[in-house]
Amino acid sequence: MSALLAFHEIAMSSSWNFEVNKVALAFRGYNVTNLGRTAELLACDAYSQIILEEFKLFSEICSQYTKESVDLTSFVTAGKEPGLERYAESIALVLAVEKAHIRILQQVHEVDTSQASYSCGYSLGELAALSFGGTFPVEEMISVPLAMADDSVKLASDIKMGVLFSRGPMISEADVERLCLQITSEGKGTIGISAILSPNTYLLIGQQQTVQHFREVMHDLLPQRVHLRINNNRWPPLHTPIVRQENIADRSSVLMETLAGGFNPPVPRVLSLVTGKMSYDDHSARNILRKWIDHPQRLWDVVCEILAQGTKTVVHVGPEPNVIPATFSRLSDNVLQQTVVGSLGSLGMRAVSGMARRPWLAALLPEQATLLRAPHVKHVILEDWLIENAPR
């Protein structure tokens, strides 16, 4: 076929049944694991040349900032995660794989990805979405996080992440923010909200013992049925005030002033996790990205907007995508349990108990009826689809 296929026509070669203007692309960000199934994709003859080209390009760009030779291919073939210690290489790896995924979809499977309704991205993924949409060349866009990689790792030396959650009431964002500010004001480290995953789930990132201290005092302000689980991995403290300690937000803003591009709205549109809206136009990208650095990721607002847009399929781009698919999976399960058909008398005690534990969702459903669409949105992990549909 000489012409690129529209998304809805891809059903000719797979079980997907896309409808044009009802597809969203979701790009993933940095995680403690970033290889995914890239080695399997690299082993596919039809894909390997594209992947190797992107690895070569991003290795060369990355080496300009690490001041040493970088070979992204070697990480994949050895099955070795770059990790936080080689954060610059991890950034380059994720963006290289995401760009390769899109190129493979376009050039091998002849899918016109520009026909997607819009795109979005968690954390680093928003930079990928903007680059994919043509606002900035990806080779330019990656220069900013790479330039700040060493300082991001430096700040991560005493970082802890906490998952704040409740299966009962909603958790007030204002109360969480106030508690973070109160703890920070004690002068023993900074803590802040990194992401709002839902009205009952937040990611917190804090220095020293601030996350533990938050857990000790949180019930002074938050409901008793709120819990905090601490993640012992180290994380770069993006999307929190902690980055201001190395002036990362301001220094990044200065770097972005001279990036090529930024004066065309992205095509497809980009739904920003900074604002929770389609905020990018022909000049706003630099200002939004300035806030991207030290403001929390508003994933819940984006989930609600995806559902309000009438999106039927979300295609998850990148190696082993996790945060966005997992958030939708939890929401879908909760909605199904909250709206299960039948009278309470016909339900088991476990189902009734499950409904009772989700008053946050019960309170939202009357006003945000679009949440009921969550179980009906199809999610496609692109690396899985590419492997299953590799030309033989």
Rank of each mutant, 00 (worst) to 15 (best):
S152K: 01
V226M: 09
I230G: 12
Q182M: 07
S152W: 11
R234Q: 09
G206A: 02
M170P: 03
V163R: 07
L181H: 11
D151E: 12
N200C: 00
S166D: 00
L179I: 10
S152V: 09
S172A: 12
N231S: 11
L222Q: 08
L221H: 15
T210K: 04
R178I: 04
K154L: 13
L221W: 15
M218W: 14
L181P: 08
A156H: 05
N232Y: 13
C180M: 12
P236S: 15
S157T: 01
L181D: 13
Q182K: 14
F165N: 00
A149N: 10
P199Q: 00
L155R: 03
C180P: 07
P199N: 03
R229A: 14
P199W: 02
L155K: 01
C180Q: 10
R167W: 07
D158A: 10
F165A: 06
V217E: 12
P223M: 06
P236F: 15
D220A: 14
L238Y: 15
V211Q: 04
H213F: 13
M148W: 07
E173R: 05
K188Q: 14
A149I: 06
Q209P: 00
V211G: 02
Q208G: 02
N200E: 03
R229T: 01
L181V: 02
Y202R: 06
R225Q: 08
S194F: 01
Q224S: 06
L204D: 01
Q208V: 13
Y202K: 03
Q207H: 06
